[in-house]
Design a protein around this nucleic acid. Structure first.
Lengths: 293, 293
DNA sequence: TCCATTACCTGACTTTAGTCAGGTAACCTT
DNA sequence: AAGGTTACCTGACTAAAGTCAGGTAATGGA
């Protein structure tokens, strides 16, 4: 990897952790131990399960319990049984707890504001834009792609998101019965592959490759969660699916798309796909593309 | 301040501390307590004084001493008297210490690399550029401007940097005797002001305002350290000097500049300065500007 | 119905980080 | 040469963070 890029990243890490870290110290815990403050903040106005808190903050169960007792003693939270599962416990902020939360929220705003405070409006806008970019791309870098059965829980979840987005965006609506062909129920090597993209373990995108003739593959069900758009995930999914197709020994991949999905078309073209004639009877397809591998 | 900007900054803080923090944990200390690891890394291949280390890492003197003893016991450092001042102690890495340092250095590279690893070349370039921007502007936001006597240690240091830069950039060289007029020896309100810009206590820029007639001020000695250029510091200095002039009740400010300093001219024009006729006999001046306040 | 599992809890610990008071030797000023 | 200051040290302490073993009650499956 490029020496200069590495150096820039290291300088970035240094400056950012220094500047943000310095502000957070003794500022974001209001006289409370940092662990407690983070715990309280993580509970949030809507409450949370102890379990959620434990794995969001990566805490030992004993430690979490102790923090909870401490907050309870301070009158900041109440702990009750979960209605559905009596073992599980639900934490809610009390009146006072909510006030504390609001105070932390305000401090976070202040902290963020203080990073911008002494800049001119133009530079401030530039900083915020750069931060948004860094955030988006850093997130993107943490996304991992995995092949898995197309009927796994996460795969199903992604498909649900995908279909409901199609229903919202297609002028003609979307009916799963017409658009989702039955033979795709389970896609697996060597006749295809279903790819799930995950960020910190949570699915944020998917894509599917399926055999369509001896040496041709069809790409379908490409979906990227709105929370990570604009960071090239679609391109990565596409590239990975093509790679898989190549490994299967296929020579071409093709796909169809609807006129409502303009950004998808643009991406396919940029990735080297060329328009071809209709090759299927998908009622929702308006354009057909192909690429030689 | 803009709600949307604040939210972007908060999202940025969250994502960055999560992603970088997660990687640093248990990665950047090689089984050693974090404090020790940072101390070792800070010593560096060239060694350092205990004092330097103490205030770079903000450590209590007792604590620093203890860390030092621990590293010594592990055979990673040697501590010797300073040649010039017997009280002061100089820390050097041993052979093993150097190897450890190199390991940390490598890990930092790896960490940086891992943030870029799964991105495409184009997105990687975009991320690095955005990081550079964030770093530059975040630094800029930490810079504070202060009025102080033009003969303070930091003011003198800035002027030295300024003059040596002029000497390097002017085609005709620069001779302090000709360019620095004697009556500016000490500039102070209400006849002018010397501004020093500091980042984390270290001077990174300066600018001076001096009475030139009843209601006119002259701006001189504008200098910005190369380490913080491109983040609008010159503009901030200029704006602040104008503000001061306005407070003095002056109606105009003017200044001169050399043909070699093209970026300065551009900045003055953008800030509303208009070319005027020669108003002084500065042998190094090629252009003269004025602005009504 | 029994038994393994799960979610959470308590008590007893350790490590890390950091503070504070008081000391010694080197240095600096007068 | 005396007295204050500085740089570093040691010992005694504390708080925070985190780990581990063993427990209890609710749940789920055979």
């Amino acid at each position: 990897m490029d020496r200069q890029q590495i150096d820039t990243v290291r300088r970035f890490n240094r400056t950012v952790t220094q500047r943000i870290g310095a502000l957070e110290d003794g500022y974001l815990h209001r006289g409370r131990p940092l662990g407690e403050a983070r715990f309280l903040f993580e509970i949030g106005p809507d409450g949370a399960d102890v379990q959620q808190l434990r794995d969001r903050l990566n805490l030992d169960s004993g430690y979490a319990s102790r923090l909870l007792r401490s907050l309870e003693r301070q009158g900041l939270v109440t702990v009750g049984r979960d209605a559905e599962d009596g073992r599980r416990r639900r934490v809610m902020l009390t009146e006072t707890g909510l006030a504390e939360f609001a105070a932390y929220d305000g401090l976070s705003d202040e902290l963020a504001g203080s990073l911008l405070a002494s800049l001119t409006e133009a530079h401030r806008a530039r900083l915020v834009a750069a931060m948004a970019d860094v955030e988006r791309l850093l997130k993107a870098g943490g996304i991992v792609l995995e092949i898995e059965p197309s009927d796994s829980a996460d795969a199903r979840w992604c498909l649900e998101q995908y279909f409901s987005e199609l229903a919202a965006r297609f002028e003609e609506g979307f009916d799963t019965a017409l658009g989702a062909s039955p033979d795709e129920v389970l896609v697996a090597p060597p006749d295809g592959a279903f790819l799930v993209a995950r960020l910190d373990g949570r699915p944020v995108g998917c894509g599917m490759l399926r055999r369509d003739g001896e040496v041709i593959g069809e790409i379908k069900r490409m979906w990227v969660s709105p929370s990570v758009r604009g960071a090239g995930l679609a391109g990565r999914l596409l590239a990975r699916l093509e790679e898989i197709a190549r490994e299967f020994g296929w020579t071409h991949v093709r796909l169809d798309t609807n006129r409502a999905l303009a950004e998808a078309q643009a991406m396919y073209r940029k990735a080297g796909y060329r328009p071809i004639d209709r090759y299927n009877d998908n009622p929702y397809a308006d354009f057909w593309f192909e690429k030689a591998l």
